[in-house]
Design a protein around this nucleic acid. Structure first.
Lengths: 176, 176
DNA sequence: TATTGTTATACTCTATAACTATA
DNA sequence: TATAGTTATAGAGTATAACAATA
C-alpha cells in the first residue's frame, strides 16, 4: 500500500513495479485527493461487481433497491419511491410498469389520495425480493471486504452522514 | 439482519418536518446498509454540487479529471487516460476532440509508438487547469465538510484502498 | 393552484463494431 | 496477431414538456 499523501513526489521517478517502458507510472495524486472522483470510480466498479454477483437472478441495482424498499414499506407510493432512489418519476414509472407486467409488482390506487399509486409485491415479487435480500447480504460484505471490521462500520456511518448532510443542503434537488 | 423495522425508524432523527400523515417515515434500513447504494446516492449528490461549484468555469467532472491528469502527466496517451478515468477510448476521444478544437488540449503523435497520441495542455489549457485546480481545492473541502478532520483523512484513505482492491480484483474490467 | 401519475420525446452517457496504421 | 486511435451508431439512463385526474 502506498502512502496516502505522496504529493508531487513521484513525477518521472523510477518505475517501482515491472519496468516496462509501456507501464509508466502516472501521477494521479490530484484525482486521488478528490473524494468525488474516487467515489465515482468506486461506484462504477461496484456496479460491475453487482452485476456479476446477481447474475444468477438477472437483477439490476435499481430493481434491487426497488424490491428492498417496497418489501420494507408496504403501500409506498411511486413518488415516495422516486425520491428515495433519487430518480425522476417518469423514469421510475417505466421500470415499475415492466415489473408489473412481469408479475412482480402490484399497483393500487390509494384510498386516501386517489392520485397516488401504492406499491406492493406479488407473491412472486416477494420470493424474488427474498432471493435478492439473501444475495445482497453477501454482496454487501464483499463491497467492504478490503476494510477491517471496525473500519466497515465507520465507513458506512460516514457515508450515511455525508448523504444526509448533502440531502439537507438542498432538499431533494428535483423540486427546489 | 432480518429485523425489518428495528433499525432506521428508531435511530433516525424524528420527523424533522411537520408530521403530516403524508410524510410517513419510511424504513430505508436495507438500503442504508447497502454500501453500494449509499455510494451511488452520494455520487449523484456530489455531481450536482460539482456543477454548482464550477458553474463559473462551466466545467464538467470529466473535463476536470482530464485537465488534472494531463496537467500532472505531460505526454500521457489517450489510452492511458481512458484507463485512469475508467472510460472507453471512443467516448474519451470525442471529448478530447472538442477540447482540442476549443484550444485547450494539444495532441501529438508519439515518437516511440506512432500509433499512440500524447496529450498536453495549451497555454489556455494550463490557465484553465490552474483555475480548475483552485476551485477544486475548495470543492474537495466542501465534499467532506460534514466529517471531522481526522475522519476526512480516514474516509479518503479507505476510499483509496477500496478502489485499489477493486481494480486489482479484475484488472481493468475492459480487457480482462 | 399544486401534486400524482402517465406518455412522449430529447438529450447525455456508455458500449460495440468496423476500420486504419502501427507494433 | 495485437494494440492505439478514429468514426459511426446503437443502447441505456436521465431529463423536460404536456396532459389528465385529483387534492
Amino acid at each position: 500500500m502506498q502512502s496516502p499523501r505522496s504529493r508531487s513526489a513521484a513525477k518521472k521517478s523510477p518505475p517501482v513495479e515491472t519496468a516496462d517502458e509501456k507501464k509508466k507510472t502516472l501521477d494521479l495524486s490530484a484525482l486521488q485527493q478528490t473524494p468525488g472522483f474516487m467515489i465515482r470510480i468506486l461506484q462504477l466498479l461496484n456496479f460491475e461487481a453487482f452485476f456479476r454477483h446477481f447474475q444468477s437472478l438477472g437483477l439490476s441495482p435499481v430493481e434491487y433497491s426497488i424490491l428492498m424498499t417496497v418489501r420494507d414499506n408496504e403501500a409506498v407510493t411511486q413518488s415516495e419511491l422516486a425520491a428515495v432512489l433519487k430518480m425522476r418519476l417518469p423514469n421510475l414509472v417505466k421500470i415499475l410498469s415492466v415489473m408489473e407486467e412481469a408479475g412482480i409488482m402490484k399497483r393500487k390506487r390509494s384510498a386516501r389520495d386517489k392520485r397516488a399509486v401504492e406499491l406492493s409485491l406479488s407473491a412472486a415479487g416477494q420470493k424474488r425480493a427474498d432471493e435478492a435480500r439473501r444475495l445482497g447480504e453477501t454482496f454487501n460484505e464483499h463491497t467492504l471486504a478490503p476494510l477491517s471490521k471496525p473500519e466497515r462500520a465507520a465507513f458506512l456511518q460516514m457515508l450515511t452522514r455525508l448523504v444526509e448532510a448533502y440531502r439537507r443542503e438542498f432538499a431533494r434537488g428535483e423540486n427546489a
